[in-house]
């Protein structure tokens, strides 16, 4: 565990907290993609199956359970909460799951370290996490007024990705057997998806304006 990874995890946790607070405090999930949130829940379920058979540290197990619980809590609010679900932009959030899940599953079946059920599911979760933000980015492009909490949520997620890349560079330099090309390539793709968003986020932040993405 190094400082970069700790920062990455904290940004990840903070992004989820910001989103949960937004939903609970404003009783609204406007601008948030349910598709992205459900994909993240799927990512966590596939990746953290190892909670049942391997133990790394109290920190890891605690964070895994927290990520699972918060992901399902967000999905529950958006799908079933009587007030919150009415604020969901159903008509705008049209990204098709199958376009993301099918290629990731195929890729995980072909490109993996070991052909076992848990390893393939783990690899699938790595690939899926890389692209799960796409429905959210598409939704933000369609929504004209992006509220600050939504913009900050995505920015915090981007910061989490950035710090994980620093963590991998650090581990690559300091650990002899750190050759994680599956994680590397997916991670770089995932972070690159945020580059465009960050460009406009920085522009609006500098001009002290509300975030607006060009159509």
């Amino acid at each position: 565990m190094n400082l970069f990874r700790l920062c990455g995890d904290m940004f990840h946790l903070l992004s989820i907290m910001v989103l949960l607070l937004k939903i609970r405090a404003t009783r609204s999930c406007r601008g948030i993609s349910l598709k992205t949130q459900e994909l993240y829940a799927l990512v966590f379920v596939c990746r953290y199956l190892d909670l049942f058979y391997s133990f790394i540290s109290v920190y890891n197990s605690f964070m895994k359970v927290t990520f699972l619980a918060t992901a399902f809590s967000i999905v529950r609010y958006m799908r079933y909460d009587k007030v919150v679900k009415q604020t969901y932009d159903r008509e705008q959030d049209t990204f098709r799951y199958v376009f993301l899940i099918a290629p990731c599953l195929l890729l995980a079946l072909v490109l993996n370290h070991r052909f076992t059920l848990t390893e393939v599911l783990w690899t699938f979760s790595i690939y899926l996490e890389a692209v799960a933000i796409l429905p959210q980015l598409v939704l933000m492009q369609r929504t004209q007024n992006i509220d600050n909490l939504t913009a900050n949520y995505v920015a915090l997620l981007g910061a989490y990705r950035g710090f994980y890349i620093l963590n991998w560079i650090y581990r690559f330099a300091t650990e002899r057997h750190y050759r994680q090309w599956i994680v590397w390539i997916s991670g770089v793709i995932q972070t690159a998806l945020y580059a465009d968003f960050f460009f406009y986020y920085a522009l609006c932040w500098k001009a002290n304006k509300r975030l607006q993405l060009p159509a």
């Binding site: 990874r5 995890d9 391997s54 964070m63 895994k64 990520f67 390893e119 963590n167 057997h177 994680q180």
Partner: peptide
């Protein structure tokens, strides 16, 4: 253990 290290991340 080629991939043991990646599994210790979140």
């Amino acid at each position: 253990q080629a991939n043991a290290t990646a599994h210790d991340e979140l």
